[in-house]
Design a protein around this nucleic acid. Structure first.
Lengths: 304, 304
DNA sequence: GGGACCCTATCGGAAAAGCCGATCAGAGCA
DNA sequence: TGCTCTGATCGGCTTTTCCGATAGGGTCCC
């Protein structure tokens, strides 16, 4: 194993620039004997002489010249390390791997990316879409830094920074009796065909809870993979559904044949939060991200 | 001053590749506590945390990733150093700064460069032309490695590797009485106008010695800066001169209006030698160069 | 939820390296 | 031939590095 101290490479550089052991030692602030020994150690680990000391002036051997070039390169790279550290110390200034659930990602990303780019130009955001349990597993193993999820009750093992509340809105066809109403409740949609996202999506459970799981048998529900598909199914009078406000805000329900109606229920909203590993070294970064999302109001309507 | 051991950078690389302190320590062959301390030291000198150790798996922080990249670069550069040393150990495999005197350089260089390139492809030859005392001064101070000179008696302070003897030939106009002769001697040119190189050129003194300084007063001699100029002056019947065989061999006297004649005199030759600093670290290189010049017979007619 | 297992951090003592001042040997110069 | 300057060497001291043992957490399985 090579035993080589960066400091000794620096000594060598100064030695060449000074042209003399004693001057270099004085310049560095060490004894001449120390420098002599350090250079000999350098030559021993490299495996050849660097300097010709026989003459009145030190003469750099070809090997010494090659080593000098590399030593300068190395010192430059070493010198950058504290700068890297300083840069990393600034909030949201480096790579951050963010996971989002499918009922948020497509609606939030366009605005969020723009907003983050403006506020944190150094941020190198890496985004992945996945269901809650997948994202949390990746956060746990370190493949993701944070996950923006909507089921903060199932994430007790994680640090949760709440972002806000995302209400669920009822979506009905334009010609539906409820289409003109200001608000509706669970009792208004009894017997209706309820359209849900596939199993695994947390929104599915939230919707079932919002309408009251008793009122709709799961067997009677029809599933879709994405919210836009749900919208098209509502348009086609296959049934009705509830979608989160973030999707509505992004235009998910803006076709002319559907209407959104406020849904009054004790559970007609979901709480959004950023989940990260507890005691993670970068918690300051995560807090900054949560604070930014809250302040910008990109998602949710303020903390519960 | 940054106190950082290359070894610890290597530790960090292995640590990241192993994914665990204990595995990395076992792989390197050090104690786990040692590795822990080394990484903490690294983080202290760099100025920020490199890893998040809170979870089950080590997670590389952005700073750690940047440092890892640089560490790998640095290790690669360090690893090349012994290779550089090994290459430098081969003879004539690196830069060599050679000085030549004006009465040799223009005639020898074309053939010598080709020959050296063939024999030592790694050689990076840097050539300078200068008068003997200039070259020797530069050898002494280390700005040149060796000088090919013709006045080895004036260089007692240097290591001299003799290359061979360079005879001096008489040059006369074609219609000169001596032009048809096989040989001539000092007595044959008494009273002739002798053409010499300028003061400072060692050839000037060699010629004066060869003809016997008594036979020609310096005042009667006419000077030129280069041997081709001398040739033109002989052509123009301004006088006669002696030039070294190396110049003749390179075609310096091949115009139709001059003839060369062997000059018989105890001093009608000069000894060529490579001068280098005594006890120089690269003496093996210089010996190899001298041996090559002798073996190739590019200059001189064998050792005296 | 309790216990086993694995992980990293910490501590005291031993080994090694780094450093210093003093001294020695050699080269260059007068 | 001395004198001066320079780098190498040596003994002793300080600092760093390393190790084994141990402590403190986190994770996972029962």
């Amino acid at each position: 194993m090579i035993n080589l101290n960066i400091r000794h490479l620096y000594y060598f550089i100064i030695l060449v620039e000074s042209g003399s052991f004693s001057k270099a030692a004085a310049h560095i602030g060490i004894g001449q004997s120390t420098l002599s020994g350090a250079i000999q150690g350098l030559e021993a680990t490299i495996g050849g002489p660097l300097l010709d000391r026989t003459g009145r002036e030190l003469v750099l051997l070809p090997l010494g010249e090659a080593v000098l070039r590399r030593a300068r390169d190395i010192m430059a790279q070493i010198g950058e390390l504290p700068d890297l550290a300083a840069r990393s110390a600034r909030p949201l200034s480096s790579r951050l791997r963010l996971g989002l659930i499918p009922s948020i990602a497509p609606f939030l990303l366009p605005r969020m990316l723009k907003s983050l780019k403006r506020a944190f130009p150094e941020l190198d955001l890496y985004v992945r879409e996945g269901m809650t349990h997948t994202l949390l597993s990746e956060v746990r193993t370190g493949r993701l830094d944070v996950a923006l999820i909507a089921d903060i009750n199932g994430a007790e093992d994680f640090d949760i920074a709440e972002i806000g509340r995302d209400p669920l809105l009822l979506v009905v066809p334009t010609d539906h009796p409820l289409a003109g109403r200001n608000a509706a409740g669970p009792e208004d949609i009894e017997g209706e065909q309820l359209l849900l996202l596939d199993k695994g999506h947390c929104l599915r459970q939230h919707v079932l809870t919002a309408v009251g799981a008793d009122h709709v048998t799961e067997a009677a529900a029809v599933s879709a993979f994405t919210i836009p598909t749900l919208m098209h199914m509502v348009e086609a009078h296959i049934g009705i559904t509830l979608i989160p406000e973030v999707a509505v805000r992004a235009g998910a329900a803006s076709q002319s044949d559907v209407r959104t109606v406020r849904f009054d229920s004790p559970h007609a909203w979901r709480t959004l939060g950023l989940a990260s590993r507890p005691r993670a070294a970068r918690s300051a970064d995560f807090d900054a991200l949560a604070e930014h999302l809250r302040a910008e109001g990109l998602i949710g309507i303020g903390p519960q």
